[in-house]
Amino acid sequence: MGRRELRNLAESAAVLAVLAVLAFGLPAVNAAIPAAQAVATDRPYQLGDGVTVRPPDGAQLDVTRSGRGSTLFLLGGVRYLLVVAPFTGRLEDVAAQLRQKITANRGYQVTGSENPTRTDQGVTGRQGGYTSPGRNGRYAVFLHAGVAVEVTIAGADLDLRSALPGLTVSVASIEFPGPP
């Protein structure tokens, strides 16, 4: 191999190294830093659009999946996701939209019937359950004054069973701005 080819080889290796750093190095550094951070559970947490929730005891905030109306709490192996967004339709439409998002994932199925529910503030909603490979889930939707809240809770059966009482209290603590 001549000098010119050796130089070309070195320059090619440098290009490959930059690609490797970006494609594998950066994700590795990211993985080494924990995403879950402590969150105060003794006061309401701002979800966006003036909506608040009281996180369940022991919950941590996944900072990488939170922001712009989306908030993900982690409770052991259970994921507790709340999404707040303006919505112009009816409560049934929000529920249908969330069911569609859930079942769009391969292997996810909504199970059983959907039931009415209510927050401590008095805002009515609908809730149901779903299943996915290795995990079970619950969902709920609320709509008040043009703002919708979509709640999804997912985890392995045992984890979910022990966390569910605290999560149920937390979901009921969702509070919209203004009177119900």
């Binding site: 690609l19 970006l22 494609a23 594998f24 950066l26 994700p27 550094v29 990211n30 830093i33 924990p34 995403a35 951070q37 905030l61 900072v63 990488t64 939170s66 922001g67 712009r68």
Partner: peptide, 28 residues
């Protein structure tokens, strides 16, 4: 190449911003 690399690296960089600065800064 650029798309496949950026999909991985962008996600990691966004998460690092959320962890090291704040979720709101990362989102905005």
């Amino acid at each position: 190449v650029a798309t496949a690399t950026s999909v991985r690296a962008d996600a990691a960089a966004h998460d690092l911003l959320a962890k090291l600065v704040s979720p709101d800064f990362a989102a905005t």
